[in-house]
Write a protein that binds this DNA or RNA. Structure first.
Length: 153
DNA sequence: GCCAACGTTGGC
DNA sequence: GCCAACGTTGGC
């Protein structure tokens, strides 16, 4: 299948693009939304490209690129009573939440901010603009390419 | 810090 | 199955 494109949100205070650059690779734990889970569990493939978005930042925006390094497997934090992501209804036999691993690719030469994205007609159909609170979302190749081009200008 | 959007939970 | 109450996300 052709490479697909995604966007993931992360609060830089929690885990920023710099943290990902330092670590090289990480597991994307803590996603507790069924739409986002289904995308990770069923659609994300190794090698897919991922726009890395800083939410709750000033300004919020796309700051880098990552790629899917491992396809979905159960998110271990759901089984951990001490984790804030613990889910008492999940069992090892029947996990409810899944995650993927993502690897650092590069930081954008310049962040592309949310206001800028909102001002760009060709990006007006992005899920980011039209649906609040989805932390893993699909992106069109044309949108991905345009954001990269904007970051270089 | 506020609050709109909206997903989830649980009573009925 | 409906829907009110509740909790969270995330921009501003």
């Amino acid at each position: 299948m052709a490479r697909q494109y995604w966007l993931v949100k992360s609060e830089p205070d929690v885990y920023s693009i710099d943290d990902l650059e330092r670590d090289g690779e990480t597991f994307w734990d803590g996603v507790r939304n069924y739409s986002a889970r289904n995308l990770m569990r069923d659609k994300m493939r190794v090698g897919d490209r991922v726009l890395y978005y800083h939410s709750n930042a000033k300004p919020p925006g796309v700051v880098g690129i990552a790629e899917v390094a491992r396809e979905s497997y159960p998110d271990h934090t759901q089984f951990d009573p001490k984790s804030k992501y613990h889910d008492p209804k999940a069992t090892e036999e029947k996990p409810r939440w899944f995650m993927v691993d993502i690897a650092f690719v590069e930081k954008l030469p310049r962040a592309v901010s949310l206001p800028e994205i909102k001002d760009t007609k060709a990006l007006s159909e992005m899920v980011l603009v039209n649906r609040s609170r989805l932390s893993v979302q699909p992106v069109r190749k044309s949108e991905y390419d345009l954001i990269l081009r904007m970051s270089r200008s």
